[in-house]
Write a protein that binds this DNA or RNA. Structure first.
Lengths: 153, 153
DNA sequence: TTTTTTACAGTAATTTGTATGGAATAGGTG
DNA sequence: CACCTATTCCATACAAATTACTGTAAAAAA
């Protein structure tokens, strides 16, 4: 698993900060030529360390300024019941993240919507239609202090 | 704010799914030539719709397989007290996300660590040293059902 | 209608990505 | 030590992409 040297980790750090850096510039930062950096990146992609390259967009500018965390408790905890729930959750695009958690609730959802009335609509017409949901608790986000996709290693 | 047409939105959708698609291929998907697509992307970057391009890495492969949400309640709620707390939070790389929330707690943190003992070390030696923390509650993630950075519009 | 602006296509210049062969280095084995 | 092997790197060259430029047609404004 950890067959990565310091150069690999440096490459990953740079790419998760800005993936549009070109190989030439990245090579000069690492005091190398283009070829080794190019080959290392391809290897890191092949081996699955790099999963994908994406553009991060501005939520507010795209009218998705409201973030809500929603804790969900299921009615029954049978095996197939949970998998059905999961299938329904994944299909809803408003749900950006979903975790199976320990504690008072079974799942925690991160939901992005435009405003409160959109959230109401989401809960009433989408979330509530999912079978086997016993209880939900909404936690509204007043401010985003920090959001990062960068892993620290 | 919403001076984006359907073509712009299509471009954003593609780029937030895979930012390594080249302009030529993206253009053919949209039945356009390279120039308009290129210019639209540059405009979307300039205007801040696209914030950054990043590589998403595999948490588990990089020994950060444990996710914990930590709810934090402050002792005092004075103005500068909160801003000091925020400054300390942002400096900790284990904290990937931080939200100011409504409800029983003041802040909610998303924390990425290697394992339980790393989390213990984080709480004992880093989180606890931050002033003015009154109470914390850790919610451990047993499984990641869905994680996406894509906005749905 | 005329002017101006905007969006698009085509082409050319520049830069970058990608593939290949060979040199340097490191680790292991007789 | 000498030798082998694998790995990592550099240098070069070509393919492909990005970027810039010019012109034109459609749309908007005057």
């Amino acid at each position: 698993m950890e067959n990565l040297d310091k150069i690999d980790l440096q490459i990953l750090k740079h790419l998760q900060e800005n993936s549009n850096i070109n190989t030439k510039e990245l090579a000069s930062k690492l005091f190398l030529t283009v070829t080794p950096v190019y080959e290392r990146i391809k290897r890191l992609e092949r081996d699955g360390y790099i999963m994908k390259y994406v553009a991060l967009l501005d939520k507010k500018k795209l009218n998705l300024g409201m973030t809500v965390f929603c804790n969900v408790r299921l009615k029954e905890h049978a095996r197939n019941v949970g998998s059905n729930f999961v299938k329904d959750i994944v299909a809803l695009p408003e749900i950006i993240e979903c975790y199976n958690i320990a504690g008072d609730y079974d799942f925690m959802l991160k939901i992005l919507v435009e405003d409160m009335s959109s959230y109401q609509d989401f809960v009433m017409n989408k979330l509530s239609t999912i079978e086997n949901i016993g209880y939900t608790q909404s936690i509204f986000v007043m401010g985003e202090i920090k959001y990062s996709t960068e892993l620290s290693f």
